[in-house]
Simulated scan of single mutants.
Amino acid sequence: MTALDSWRVLTDDKSGDIVLAVDFDATGRPEARFTDLVTAMGPGITVWETVPQSMGGADVGLTGEGYIGRWAEEVRASGRQVSAVMGFCVGSVYAAPLAERIGQWQREAPRMILFDPEQASPLSMYWQFLKVIELMSSVLSPAEAAEAREAGRLAQQENENDLPRLGAELLKQFQESGGLAFDRLGLDAERRAEVSVTFGSFISYLSAAGQLDPFADWRKAIAISSASPTSGLNAARAAAPGGEVDMVAQELRFGAQHTELLRDPEVARAVADLIRSRA
């Protein structure tokens, strides 16, 4: 098989259809991963996962359509048939139009399976920034951490309607606070670059997702919902009861929390059944 740049192979049975998974997987994330899900699903299913981060920084500034085009081009060049496209959280924003794009050259569009689907928003971007500041709080003084959090809050407040600009402001603040933290941790230049580029790529991934409108495609999808009240369709349900009904074609609800959704055995069995029924 030709080497892949935009995908990594999680499992491969060397034949048959493939399943695509869209997510931003990075070292240190608290949420379960698609690697956890595919392990629990058992053999016989080939899964490729997106590799959005680039240590060369090539993803920074990429548009939403740019991500879709890059991923789709490599899938098409492989010649493999895609039976399903999965997306986790904001990855669902990309997964749905990617499935539609693939359906343009296949006989049948892939099934869409979305895990706690959410759109990128200024609040979610700010929340991700806060998580990073929290990780650095052990080496930042309380005043420095508070200053960083306040700078992020002001950036969110001032850029409510401009995700790319908000992303740039949060990245700037990350570089300032991160510089202090990296000095105190004694990180070398290579490790500093790795952490900075990963965060920048993640911010770019979230910003570009804000350029896509997934709702028409989501209406054809199956949603896998956790029990976390502030995640996925549960958040939509809390904000406007009943409004989530028309967002997807079908919803399967589970007792796992958002961070454990991709690790839950019941979820894995249900998803494996959905995939095998389409094969």
Rank of each mutant, 00 (worst) to 15 (best):
T2P: 10
T2M: 09
A3H: 14
L4K: 07
S6E: 03
T11V: 10
D12F: 14
D17P: 13
I18G: 06
D23K: 08
D23A: 11
F24G: 00
D25F: 13
G28Y: 05
R33V: 09
R33M: 10
T35W: 03
M41V: 03
G42N: 13
G42S: 15
W48C: 01
W48L: 13
S54F: 02
S54W: 07
M55D: 14
G57E: 06
G61T: 04
G61F: 04
L62H: 03
L62A: 13
L62M: 15
T63P: 15
G69I: 08
R70C: 09
R70E: 15
A72S: 15
V75W: 02
A77K: 12
A77E: 14
S78R: 11
S78E: 02
S78M: 14
G79F: 02
G79D: 05
R80W: 01
Q81V: 02
A84F: 00
A84L: 02
A84S: 10
V85N: 00
V85L: 07
G87F: 00
F88Q: 12
F88C: 12
C89N: 09
G91Y: 09
V93K: 01
Y94A: 02
A95T: 10
A96P: 15
A96W: 08
A96L: 07
L98V: 00
E100I: 15
E100G: 15
G103R: 03
Q104C: 10
E108I: 11
L114H: 03
A120M: 07
S121M: 13
P122D: 08
L123H: 08
S124M: 10
S124V: 11
Y126R: 12
F129E: 05
L130R: 15
K131F: 05
I133F: 04
S137R: 07
S138M: 01
L140S: 08
L140I: 03
A145F: 08
A146Q: 12
E147S: 13
R149M: 12
R153A: 15
R153D: 10
R153H: 13
L154F: 11
A155Q: 06
Q157P: 01
E158Y: 09
N161I: 14
N161R: 11
N161A: 14
R165E: 15
L166E: 04
E169G: 11
L171V: 12
A181R: 00
R184Y: 07
R184T: 00
L185T: 03
A189P: 00
E190W: 06
A193W: 00
S201I: 06
F202M: 13
F202D: 04
L206F: 11
S207T: 10
Q211H: 11
A221L: 08
A223W: 04
I224P: 00
S226K: 08
S226L: 02
L233A: 10
A235H: 02
A236P: 02
A236Y: 14
R237Q: 07
A238R: 11
A239N: 15
G242F: 12
D246E: 15
D246V: 15
V248G: 08
R253Q: 00
F254C: 06
G255L: 05
G255K: 12
G255R: 05
A256N: 06
V267T: 01
R269W: 03
R269N: 09
A272H: 00
A272S: 07
L274Q: 02
R276V: 06
S277W: 12
A279T: 13
